[in-house]
Design a protein around this nucleic acid. Sequence first.
DNA 1: GATGTCTCAAGATA
DNA 2: CTATCTTGAGACAT
Length: 671
Amino acid sequence: MEQGFGSDPSGSTIDKTRVLDVKPLRCLSPVFPSASEMSSITTPQPSPFVCITPTGPFPSGVTPIFPFLSPDEPVRMGESSQQTPNQVPNQGTFGFGQPISPIPVNSFGNQTANGSSGHVNNVGDSGSGKKKGGPKKPRKVPPENVVEVDVEPLLNQLLMSFKLVDLDQAKKADGDKEVVRRILLVFDLFRRRMTQIDEPRYGAGSGRRPDLKASKMMMLKGMRTNQTKRIGNVPGIEVGDIFFFRMELCVVGLHAPTMSGIDYMSLKLTKDEEPLAVSIVSAGGYDDDGGDGDLLIYTGQGGVQRKDGQMFDQKLEKGNLALEKSVHRANDVRVIRGVKDVANPTGKIYIFDGLYKIQGSWEEKNKTGCNVFKYKLLRVPGQPEAFKVWKSIQQWRDGVVSRVGVILPDLTSGAESQAVCLVNDVDDEKGPAYFTYIPSLKYSKPFLTPRPSLGCQCIGGCQPDDTNCPCIQRNQCLLPYSSLGVLMTYKNLIHECGSACSCPPNCRNRMSQGGPKVRMEVFKTKNKGWGLRSWDPIRGGCFICEYAGEVRDIGYDRDDNYIFDATRIYEPLEAVHDYNDESRKVPFPLVISAKNGGNIARFMNHSCSPNVYWQLVVRESNNEAYYHIAFFATRHIPPLQELTFDYGMDKADHRRKKCLCGSFKCRGYFY
DNA sequence: GATGTCTCAAGATA
DNA sequence: CTATCTTGAGACAT
């Protein structure tokens, strides 16, 4: 909320009187509501406002629309659908509002089963006959009562929302930033949605490889880009971009093989062709040496029997041959470094570390005495840092090297479980204007609900397959969060567990209640005042923080630069305008000021192409409803990338400020 | 073209 | 926490 502050083109300067030195910032401890405010919470008085909950009832002339579209239909089939009163017909909800119809088991991904082929439309005939007539491989049979869900309509809706339905051949061959981003978004949203649908039906984690399912269906529809192999950078992908699945590398053409570490292409240079390496993945599968960040000693492929682990000599063929040829051609080779995902010990994160050149190769004996090929790669100079940033952060964390420019090690004074440091390595400003750090939203009085809502009895936390849990029922019978805390769908409203629930604070349905899960820092930006970023990588859909502050019941000071106003017009993520044009007019009357007190969210700057979005969350207990604004990552966010969200459009055309987000679709101003 | 083999996955299970 | 099992997509050889 600092953007534009002090950067007014009219020449006004920063008000130094409002900028305090380090010491007062130590006072940023949580301040709780005064006794009188407290009492209004415990004994609610008649609310002066009209009660409008996102699910209705709505005053006459008001349509429930974005971000308060109709509740999704229950997805689980074979169960009595819990129709909520006030349910309105489904409208477009970015591909997630459609009810899902059950089709017989095995029909997904196997077009020969039960004659249910044909629901994959738009498919080239290249792969459709592959399994024709062949004997079916024995498959692990899903539990008896599991009904396979036809997820294709979900993908179709997503593709429509993100304008990918008629992706032309040129874009499939060579992408750009926009196409790459949309494809990744659809892939991840689709994958997350399938994870959510599968989990209660197959058990935790599902084991159904939703990543493979998602990529398969997208590839069948030709929804991929940069399919032409190329040497060097890939359009739309920047050095430092991160990925959470090998399939993501595949659908955007950064690294085509699904498992293999070496991607190569054949190139006609003279009269005959020769294979050249274009991309490698170093992810710990072999005994590579990661070097100091600019150097990489890469091991060739092969030499080990996958089934029994038996070793033999590597051969100079396939990827190894391509790498050998590339030594002599001295072509650029993309390097993707795989690292362990701290937030998910079984998972990996893939960092695009830019272009390298192979300096040389040799053969050596490994521990078992077999010959392996080694390739020495050196990073091409002049590229933005990527993997090196990760190494630096690790050193800060380990305390080996201290972070430059730290003003305060923890500006929350312990109010959050993770420390948030205050950093300025661009100028001598000592800190933001004084405020009180409060980790959550302060209500003077809650919204009232028309009927009392029941708390759950889930002693060990709400479980995805518990159909009796009232909190899960309120979320259309699907837990909104994955086991990793990733939001699985875009919804009008998320019902989290409230104070009347028996579940513990670490319940999966209380994701927005525990404060930030990643290591944050508030830092001085070059031209936008203070900003917020994370030391940790953030997966798309991850909870970031809520917007803490004081709920404003009666208007607010227009000079308040720390307002969150849900009554503004917000674009429904990056989905197209016309798709939900009707749907973005009725706002929710929640206005928060973080001027005097707030959390890290008050430092998030505006961007017209943001990497964070907000989502309305409600925690109910009895007749009280507490609405909160929770922020989630729109996409995978690499460490130290600034976190931004769209401040929305103000209906009254006042106090617009010049936008400095630098996005190619910048509106030029913000409110 | 069907089939087999290989590959720096990703989950589930033990 | 790691070891191992399981199911795999796509590239290439047979």
